[in-house]
């Protein structure tokens, strides 16, 4: 827990009344005073309702957007803009439709290693395509691929640049349930095998339970906060198909659902006593008990 790849320090995002903090009234705060560390090799999922600024936070981490307040540190340095150390997997796959699968991945590779010879670029791209199980489809164009295959190419493109961190914005939400399940399994396998650090947004509770090591719960916006961070108690070698047989599964799922249904909106009006946005409560659930057992750290 002492090796943060990314450290979010007190960031806020406000719209309107830009540069006129004293003008009052017109400014809307999407979220404020957000603190979070993502450690190396960790898979973090963020859950919250629409409008809590999940995507804005991801865009800030990607360097595509700037916080109105606060800073983000990447390995101890202040984040200044987009960078090849962080790869983004976009919700809408964002492949360049005029390029082939190989062309799309090679574009990222040649951006990462500008002086690499063509053969090396292609070799790296082919390896990344094979890693997501698309070997043989290198010369297809995105329009010829199914939604799941397109998102695989998006993952291959992100992995090919060997980033320090993967940022995923609801990467599987546009896919059908079967494809989504397969891709979740492969994403988990690849991230575990390579020790990849991942920050992922989702609104799918089961997806978070299966993939995440820690689940960050955000309250509703505007003025969203991190309500708590839930440590996933399930075994590291969990399988997606066996998930619902795990005794810890239901207490975790109920805890998350209760939060989304009730507490995410109630939190804003009445934060619990002693709530410190800098150290949001860390929740560990013990599956031996029926209810949730809170452990503050």
């Amino acid at each position: 827990m002492t090796d943060p790849v990314i450290s979010i320090e007190g960031i806020a995002k406000r719209y309107g009344a830009k540069g006129h903090p004293a003008s009052g009234g017109a400014s809307t705060t999407i979220f404020e005073n957000l603190w979070l560390k993502v450690n190396r090799g960790e898979f973090v999922c963020v859950i919250g309702h629409s409008g809590c600024g999940k995507t804005t936070i991801l865009n800030i981490l990607a360097g595509l957007d700037r916080p109105s307040e606060g800073v983000v540190l990447v390995e101890g340095r202040e984040l200044a803009g987009p960078g090849l150390d962080r790869a983004v997997i976009f919700q809408g796959h964002a492949l360049l439709p005029w390029r082939t699968v190989l062309g799309n991945v090679a574009y990222a590779v040649s951006s990462r290693w500008r002086r690499a010879p063509k053969a090396e670029v292609e070799e790296r791209a082919r390896r990344a395509i094979a890693a997501v199980g698309l070997a043989g489809a290198e010369h297809k164009r995105p329009a010829e691929l199914s939604g799941g295959m397109k998102q695989r190419v998006g993952i291959a493109r992100a992995l090919a640049i060997e980033p320090k961190m993967l940022l995923m914005d609801e990467p599987f939400s546009a896919l059908d349930a079967l494809t989504r399940g397969t891709l979740q399994e492969e994403a988990r396998r690849i991230c575990r095998d390579t020790g990849q650090t991942v920050y992922m947004i989702t609104h799918d509770v089961d997806e978070a339970i299966y993939l995440a090591d820690r689940i960050v719960l955000m309250t509703n916006g505007p003025g969203a906060r991190i309500a708590e961070i839930v440590i996933n108690p399930l075994a590291a070698d969990r399988s997606r198909s066996g998930l619902h047989h795990d005794p810890a599964y239901y207490s975790l799922r109920n805890h998350l659902m209760d939060f989304l249904v009730a507490r995410s909106s109630a939190f804003r009006e009445a934060p619990p006593d002693g709530y410190d946005p800098r150290h949001p409560p860390i929740v560990t659930l013990h599956h031996s008990q029926s209810g949730a057992l809170r452990a503050m750290t």
């Binding site: 595509l64 983004v88 990222a108």
Partner: peptide, 14 residues
């Protein structure tokens, strides 16, 4: 031009 394609280029430091 779709902003997501421009964002791809930005994240790749093109």
């Amino acid at each position: 031009v779709r902003s997501e394609w421009l964002n791809v280029a930005r994240t790749l430091e093109v």
